[in-house]
Design a binder for these strands. Sequence first.
DNA 1: AATTATTTGTTACACTATTAACAAAGATTA
DNA 2: TAATCTTTGTTAATAGTGTAACAAATAATT
Lengths: 212, 212
Amino acid sequence: MELNNKIPQATAKRLPLYYRFLNNLHIQGKTRVSSKELSEAVKVDSATIRRDFSYFGALGRKGYGYNVEYLLEFFRKTLNQDTVSNVALIGVGNLGTAFLHYNFSKSNNTKIIRAYDANPDVIGTEVGHVLIEDINQLEETLANIDVAILTVPGSAAQSVTDKLVKAGVKGILNFTPARITVPTEVRVHHIDLTVELQSLIYFVEHYPMDKK
Amino acid sequence: MELNNKIPQATAKRLPLYYRFLNNLHIQGKTRVSSKELSEAVKVDSATIRRDFSYFGALGRKGYGYNVEYLLEFFRKTLNQDTVSNVALIGVGNLGTAFLHYNFSKSNNTKIIRAYDANPDVIGTEVGHVLIEDINQLEETLANIDVAILTVPGSAAQSVTDKLVKAGVKGILNFTPARITVPTEVRVHHIDLTVELQSLIYFVEHYPMDKK
DNA sequence: AATTATTTGTTACACTATTAACAAAGATTA
DNA sequence: TAATCTTTGTTAATAGTGTAACAAATAATT
């Protein structure tokens, strides 16, 4: 095992992916898997997979591969899958509604337990079994939640972010086009749908990939 | 100007972002902007911005900065914003519906012009001014579209992908949890909502950021 | 007109990530 | 049991990304 205990960011981002595919293999009844097989399933180079795993110690056996159940158990602990992570969602528009219906907790222990909106017609109703609360009560009612999904209009992004920060949120998954300002101790991951679509179009138009 | 004409992937991914913020500045009536100002707005280091721009030549003036209108015009051409990019959407569930309502073309010339689903109750209806067509007719009706947004259930991802490839699609924005297999000439960008959420939670729990 | 301030474009370096290659270990087969 | 095959874990080489630093150029000020 390498002594280094800092996991590279790129590796950390792949862990949930490995976890999910190991789960699939387990459900299919597979007991062992090689880095090469896993590579084909998750589309990540097999050397990268072995290197990723090696940060956590020697999880496999030479000439054999990895034991699915053992690996799954290991990642369950590493990814805190044995305790449920509670998440809040802010902004119950089209995208927010989609997430409330999206069953995150089916394959992993993540659950949206609170949702907020500014629209009086929506407040008090239930969407995907979650009661929609008033965004103006956010600071008073949001407690013990580390991570929030932000699906409000871009124009409201910063003011809502300020409320989230005051309420003690430590991570924000920002789906708005706005770039939000947060204190250094808060982590923001940004998913900008327009940028993703645009950059894909740019790549397709400018870097046509070679036919094999 | 640097002679190298291959734009790094990381740079290409930031171009649509720059474009949008330059648009905002233009609307606000600003005529000039420095890399430092832009940096604060888009949360990208100013040196990175200057380096990104420099791949396209000397776009600015020393001691002055960049002319907003000139830069905007330059990126409009570079990002093909003067011609509309037509996109198809496959899978009109919650997420697909959200995208159909999401007005991509408001800030950029991207438009979802065709949408497909398998559900007979949905086929023939209109969602966000787009007629929903039968997914079984996809190969016959989908023509001259380079990019598709994939929002079908994971279990259908590969079979739908095969149809898209046959129909000549060159880029797929894959929102399903499945890792799809495509010929090398087709580009896939993957946005895995569960993975994004999980990895954010992992970072928040394992790498609490220092208070400033 | 001379001086000072600003800001680019680029160089050089540091950091991060990917992957090919292979010895070592264990699994499998003969 | 010996020979062969498989596959890991790690090393080392390569590729890609980010950023501090600064000369050169221009802008702004005195």
